[in-house]
């Protein structure tokens, strides 16, 4: 099974590639949500808006970078060399998302 560039895909369903794209969409959604949240908070002169920028924006970039590494690791795993990536990055991404939600909730509850 060849892809247009002439490389080899593990399966015709391109599972690893689709999963890598899902990671990228998620990282970009995280970036967008953080920007919207930060814009809202900063416009109200609320210091937490800065925290959203300081913490969540680098986190989005980090997720994007880790997702690329994860794709490479999964490719190696499919070639039979290593194990598939584990649940650590999903844990971190879920934690960052919950954190962003809590920041937004705190803003909504405290600003009249």
């Amino acid at each position: 099974m060849s892809d247009p560039v002439g490389g080899e895909l593990f399966d015709p369903g391109a599972q690893n590639e689709r999963t890598a794209l899902a990671w990228r969409r998620t990282a970009l959604a995280l970036l967008a949500a953080a920007l919207v949240g930060a814009r809202l908070l900063v416009s109200d002169g609320w210091a937490a808006g800065l925290w959203a920028v300081v913490l969540v924006l680098p986190a989005s970039a980090w997720v994007l970078w880790m997702a690329n590494r994860r794709y490479a690791k999964a490719s190696a795993a499919l070639a039979g060399r290593t194990a598939l990536p584990d649940g650590r990055l999903p844990t971190a991404v879920a934690a960052v998302t919950v954190g962003l939600g809590l920041m937004e909730l705190q803003y909504l509850l405290t600003v009249a």
Partner: peptide, 25 residues
């Protein structure tokens, strides 16, 4: 491996749903 990948994508879809609700708010 296909099932593991599909499970991971479902997880990511839940995360994006969550983020969409934050943006809605």
């Amino acid at each position: 491996p296909r099932f593991t990948f599909a499970n991971e994508r479902t997880f990511l879809a839940w995360i994006r749903t969550s983020l969409a609700l934050f943006v809605t708010a």
